[in-house]
Measured scan of single mutants.
Amino acid sequence: SEEWVEIALRLLELGREANINGTILNLHKEEIEELIRRLLKRI
Rank of each mutant, 00 (worst) to 15 (best):
L14I: 13
V5L: 13
L35F: 04
G15C: 15
L35M: 09
E17N: 06
N19K: 07
E31T: 02
E33N: 14
H28T: 08
R42G: 11
L25Y: 04
K29G: 05
A18G: 06
R10I: 13
N21L: 14
E13V: 07
K41W: 12
L25N: 05
G15A: 14
E3P: 07
E3A: 13
W4H: 00
N26Q: 13
A8W: 10
S1A: 09
H28Q: 08
E17M: 13
R16C: 14
T23E: 12
L9A: 05
L14R: 01
R37C: 07
E3I: 11
L35E: 01
L12G: 03
E30A: 07
E34R: 07
L11Y: 01
E17L: 08
W4Y: 06
N19Y: 14
N21V: 14
R10P: 02
E17D: 08
R10N: 02
E33L: 13
E34S: 08
I43Y: 08
H28C: 15
I36R: 00
A8G: 05
G22N: 06
L27I: 12
L9N: 02
S1K: 13
L11W: 08
L14Q: 02
R42W: 15
R37Q: 08
A18W: 08
I7D: 03
E34M: 12
N26P: 11
L12K: 02
W4N: 00
E31L: 10
I20Q: 08
L25E: 01
R10S: 04
E6K: 07
L25P: 10
N21H: 09
E6V: 09
R38K: 05
L14D: 02
V5G: 04
E17V: 09
R37W: 13
E13G: 09
E13S: 05
L14Y: 04
R16N: 03
I43S: 01
L14M: 02
N19Q: 12
E17K: 05
I36Q: 00
E3S: 15
E34T: 12
I20G: 07
R10W: 14
L40G: 01
R42Q: 13
H28F: 11
I32L: 06
A8N: 01
R10F: 12
V5W: 14
G22Y: 07
L40D: 02
R42Y: 15
L9W: 14
L39M: 05
I43F: 04
G22I: 14
E33Q: 08
L39N: 00
I7E: 02
E2K: 11
E30L: 08
L14T: 01
T23C: 15
L11D: 00
I24V: 05
I24W: 09
E33V: 13
A8I: 14
E6A: 07
L11E: 00
K41A: 05
R16F: 13
N21T: 03
K29E: 08
L27T: 08
E30Q: 10
R16P: 03
I36T: 02
K41I: 09
L35Y: 08
N21M: 14
E34F: 09
L40R: 01
I24M: 06
L27D: 15
K41M: 14
I43P: 06
S1N: 06
E34D: 12
K29D: 04
A8V: 14
I20S: 10
G15V: 14
T23P: 13
G15H: 09
S1T: 10
N19F: 15
L12H: 04
L39F: 09
W4E: 01
L39W: 05
E17H: 10
L39S: 00
R16K: 10
E2W: 15
E6S: 05
R42M: 15
L14E: 01
K41N: 09
E33Y: 11
I36L: 08
L27H: 12
R42T: 14
K41F: 07
L40Y: 07
S1F: 12
L39E: 00
L14S: 01
E30W: 10
L9I: 06
G22E: 14
V5Q: 05
I43T: 03
R38M: 06
E30T: 07
E33S: 10
R37I: 12
K29A: 12
H28Y: 10
I7R: 02
V5E: 02
R38P: 01
I7G: 01
A18F: 10
E33A: 06
E33G: 07
E3H: 09
L39I: 09
I20T: 12
L9M: 04
E33T: 13
E13N: 04
E13F: 07
I43K: 02
V5C: 13
L27E: 11
L12T: 04
E30Y: 04
I43V: 02
